[in-house]
Amino acid sequence: MVAENTTQPISLTLRVWRQAGPNEPGAFVEYRSANLNPAMSFLEMLDVVNDELTIKGEEPIAFAHDCREGICGTCSCTINGKPHGPGTGIATCQLYVRSFRDGDVVTVEPFRARAFPVIKDLITDRSAFDKIQAAGGFITARTGSAPDANATPVPKPDADLAMDAASCISCGACVAACKNASAMLFVAAKVSHLGLLPQGQAERDRRVLAMVRTMDELGFGNCTNYYECSAACPKLISHDFIARMNRDYLKAMFRSSLSPESASGAGGGA
């Protein structure tokens, strides 16, 4: 995958999706990018292309980025058909030019999904994720009301598994990778993180019902077990969490059918 210590500059041809706005038609435009240092990151290459475009008097390519170290979840390009590009367990910003060979043609598109409309060029609107979180992705704990942190021991395996789930960076690659554009891996990661902890039990049923319902309302597809999601995930979140969420969901449905109270009022919090 990664060629070690290549130092010869290389040239690439980029086919980049350009779209002026949400309701404008988009198309691929080709740019030749020459004399690239293999040690530069993929996004730094786009910076250089953009500076050249600016100098030529053209509009630079809009692309989302911020931390540039794989944790904020902002960067979101589909590269050669794969969300976040070649490589395993990395976000777009952690991809380096040395992953490509001199002369390669590289196709760069936004994350594509019905629930993530394009805003401009490579930038999409992922606010649907925030809406799912607002529906139930929390433990209600008003500031100042918490007991001592060591009052409730959490078995280490549970805490570790919760941490595995919590490492999701909300990038949306799982949605873009899924042919149904399902958000199941993202939602499962959130539901499992909180549901694995003792603190998360009080709202466990209500949380999973509300988050799944909101996910469905926002136009994400269903999960039909292709598991492309985990393969594209920069944090390698396991699809086992989807099975865990499905179990939680069924239990919660069952319990809510017995007591209508616990399922109603979801979406907001007290």
Partner: peptide
């Protein structure tokens, strides 16, 4: 205390 109550792992 506050963070643990919110589920910070």
């Amino acid at each position: 205390d506050q963070c643990v109550a919110q589920g910070v792992p």
